[in-house]
Amino acid sequence: MNYTFDFNSVSFAPLLRGLVVSLELAAAANIIGIVAGFGLALLLMSPYRVVRLPFMLFVEFFRCTPALVQIVWIFYCVPMLFDVFLDPITMGVMALGLNLTAFNAEAYRASIQAVPKEQLDAGIALGLNPWQRVMYIVFPTAFRASIPVLLTNGIVIFQQSALVAIVAIADLMYEGKSLATETYRPIETFTVVALIYFAVSFPVTQIVGLLERRRQLLAS
């Protein structure tokens, strides 16, 4: 192979601008996923089938279809079907947030089912109404138990944010593609892009592993 590597041709300024956009998309999607995911989990656990069914279909749709298809569908079909026109960043946040909400709901549902009945009984004894029991007992307990999964899902959505490049959002991947086209250095450019994604994701995966080990020690 006669290829000569030249990493000096890779300009970091556009990549850093793209990284900021990627982080903004991931942060907004995580806020939506953490909050809406818990509400969705409660709806999935409704004793009424007529309430559960549409939300079960929502979860299964986002879990069983590719994220790329979801992003493209929301970008192109939502404006045509519902006459709703939003800026690309908002549409990107919506697509990623809905995807993350579906996955977080399943994590919350498992944690909610594991909340000790004694804690709920104590809340009833203290005179807390159902809403107060959810907010002061169920949510804190389920959230703590779900943190490792929520972090894992959060870093996955950061990685999946690269898919919004296909709809021309100037995220890290989009800037990388543009730079590779301009410099004719795709190997160097996409290697740097991959390393940036790794540099952001790896510390979070280590935190998840630490939390998992700590939880296993506390459980033993």
Rank of each mutant, 00 (worst) to 15 (best):
M1Q: 08
T4P: 00
D6F: 01
F7D: 04
S9I: 09
S11L: 12
F12T: 08
L15G: 11
L19F: 09
V21L: 10
E24G: 14
E24I: 13
E24Y: 09
A26N: 12
A26S: 15
A27V: 15
A29D: 10
N30V: 09
N30W: 09
G33D: 09
G33N: 11
G33R: 14
I34N: 02
I34P: 02
V35D: 03
G37M: 11
L42W: 06
S46A: 15
Y48S: 05
R49N: 07
V50L: 13
L53S: 13
L53H: 12
L53K: 14
L57V: 15
L57E: 02
F58L: 08
V59A: 10
E60K: 03
E60F: 05
F61E: 04
F61D: 06
R63D: 10
R63Y: 07
C64D: 13
C64K: 07
P66H: 11
A67Y: 08
A67C: 12
L68R: 05
V69C: 09
F75P: 06
Y76I: 05
C77L: 11
P79A: 12
F82R: 11
D83H: 15
V84E: 01
F85G: 00
P88V: 13
M91K: 14
G92A: 07
G92H: 10
L98Q: 07
L98T: 08
N99F: 13
N104I: 14
A107T: 12
R109H: 07
S111T: 06
P116N: 05
P116I: 03
K117R: 14
Q119H: 15
Q119C: 07
L120C: 01
G123D: 02
A125F: 01
N129T: 10
P130S: 12
W131K: 04
W131T: 09
W131G: 00
Q132I: 00
V134F: 02
M135Q: 07
V138Q: 02
V138K: 02
P140I: 03
P140Y: 07
P140W: 06
T141Y: 13
I147C: 11
P148E: 05
T152A: 15
N153T: 08
I155V: 15
Q160V: 09
L163V: 14
I166P: 02
L172N: 05
Y174G: 01
G176V: 01
K177P: 00
K177H: 10
I187Y: 12
I187Q: 03
I187P: 01
E188T: 04
E188F: 05
T191Q: 03
A194P: 11
V200W: 04
V200L: 11
F202I: 06
F202P: 00
F202K: 04
P203S: 06
P203E: 05
V204F: 01
Q206G: 02
Q206T: 00
I207F: 11
L211A: 03
L211H: 05
R213M: 07
L217Q: 14
S220E: 08
